[in-house]
C-alpha cells in the first residue's frame, strides 16, 4: 500500500489514493440514492407497493425550486447570454428548499389519494401498473410543460474543491453527505420515537390490526407518502445544486438506482435504505476506478447477487409464508 502511495507520478495520484477518492465520491453518490430510496422503502413497508412514480417526484422536486428561483430572477437567460443573475442569498436557498419540500409533500399525498387509494383492495399487480402509469404521466406531462431541453439551475452555492487530507470533495458534495445524514437520522428517530412514527410501524406490521387499535390508517399512509416525497424533494434540490442542469427525464435513472438501493438494503427498512444507498454508490465508484464501462452493470449484478443470497435484502426481515 505504502509503495503504491509512493509511486505517484508528479501531479498525478497513486492507485490507493485514487481508490480512497472513489470511496469518497461513492459516499456522496450513495447519500443521494439513500435519500430517494427511503421513499420507496417506506411506501413498500406500508402498502407493499413499488411506487414507480417516486423518481418523478424527485425530478419535480428540482423543478419546484427552479421555478420560484426563476421568477425571482436568479436563473440565467438563454435569450440573453450576457445577463448575470445575482448571487442567491442564503435565506432564499432555504426558501427554495422549503418550497420544493412543501410542493412535493402535497404532490405525494395527491398521488396516493387519487391513484393508489382506490386500488388498495385490488391486486398488487394492478397497483403496480397504476404506479407505472403515474410515472409515465408525470414524465410526459413534464416534457409537455417544462419542454424536454435541460434547464440551467441557479448557483445556490459557489462550488469549490475542499481538501480533506487524503481525499478532496467539492463543498456541494460535502453538503449533500451532511444533509442526507441528518435527514436520515431524523427520520429514523421520528419513526422510532414519536406517536405518528409508531402508527407507521403499526400499519406496516399489520394494517387491519392497526386500524382496530384506533390508528388512523389513511392519515398515516398519507403521511408516509408526504415524508417520502419530502426526502425526494431534498434530494432533487441537493442534486440540482451539485449538478446544475435539470430535465424531465432525470428521475428515470435516479429512481431506478435508488430503488435497487432500497431492495439491496432490505425493502421496508430505513437503515437498510441508507446502507443500500451507500453500498451501491461506493461499489459503483470503486468498480469505476477500473472500468467505468461496466460500472453501470454493477448495480444490477449486485442486486441479483444479494437477492439470491438473501432474498429479503441485507437488513430486511424475511417473512415465512403461513399455511
Amino acid at each position: 500500500m505504502l509503495e503504491l502511495l509512493a509511486t505517484a507520478e508528479p501531479g498525478g495520484t497513486s492507485l490507493a489514493q485514487a481508490l480512497l477518492q472513489q470511496v469518497a465520491n461513492g459516499i456522496a453518490k450513495g447519500s443521494v440514492y439513500a435519500l430517494i430510496a427511503v421513499g420507496y422503502t417506506m411506501v413498500y413497508g406500508v402498502l407493499q407497493l413499488i411506487n414507480f412514480a417516486h423518481g418523478e417526484v424527485y425530478m419535480l422536486g428540482a423543478y419546484f425550486s427552479y421555478y420560484p428561483a426563476k421568477w425571482m430572477g436568479y436563473t440565467t437567460d438563454p435569450e440573453d447570454p450576457t445577463f448575470v443573475p445575482a448571487k442567491v442569498p442564503l435565506y432564499v436557498v432555504g426558501f427554495l428548499f422549503v418550497c420544493s419540500m412543501a410542493c412535493c409533500a402535497f404532490l405525494g399525498m395527491l398521488i396516493e389519494r387519487f391513484a393508489y387509494r382506490p386500488l388498495r383492495n385490488s391486486s398488487r399487480l394492478a397497483a403496480l401498473i397504476t404506479a407505472i402509469g403515474v410515472s409515465l404521466l408525470l414524465q410526459n406531462g413534464g416534457i409537455m410543460l417544462f419542454k424536454a431541453d435541460p434547464r440551467g439551475f441557479p448557483t445556490l452555492i459557489e462550488q469549490s474543491s475542499v481538501d480533506l487530507g487524503l481525499v478532496a470533495l467539492t463543498n456541494t458534495k460535502i453538503i449533500i453527505v451532511v444533509v442526507a445524514a441528518v435527514m436520515m437520522t431524523g427520520l429514523h428517530l421520528f419513526v422510532q420515537k414519536t406517536r405518528p412514527g409508531a402508527a407507521m410501524r403499526a400499519c406496516s406490521f399489520d394494517m387491519r390490526t392497526a386500524r382496530l387499535m384506533g390508528v388512523n390508517v389513511d392519515g398515516t399512509i398519507g403521511l408516509t407518502f408526504a415524508i417520502g416525497s419530502i426526502m425526494a424533494a431534498v434530494a432533487g434540490v441537493l442534486v440540482a445544486m451539485d449538478q446544475p442542469t435539470i430535465d424531465p427525464l432525470m428521475g428515470l435513472m435516479a429512481g431506478l438506482k435508488a430503488f435497487v438501493a432500497a431492495v439491496l438494503g432490505g425493502i421496508g427498512s430505513i437503515p437498510g435504505a441508507a446502507l443500500g444507498g451507500l453500498l451501491l454508490g461506493v461499489t459503483e465508484s470503486v468498480v469505476g476506478t477500473f472500468s467505468t464501462t461496466y460500472a453501470e452493470a454493477v448495480a444490477f449484478v449486485l442486486l441479483i447477487l444479494v437477492l439470491l443470497v438473501k432474498p429479503s435484502g441485507l437488513l430486511g426481515k424475511s417473512g415465512r409464508e403461513k399455511v
Partner: peptide, 21 residues
C-alpha cells in the same frame, strides 16, 4: 472513460482522468 445515458454525476470518471494528468 465512459458513462451511461442520463448520468449527471461524473466523479468516478473525472477522478480517473485526473489521476492520469
Amino acid at each position: 472513460e465512459s458513462y451511461k445515458e442520463g448520468t449527471k454525476e461524473f466523479a468516478s470518471q473525472i477522478t480517473n482522468v485526473k489521476a492520469k494528468t
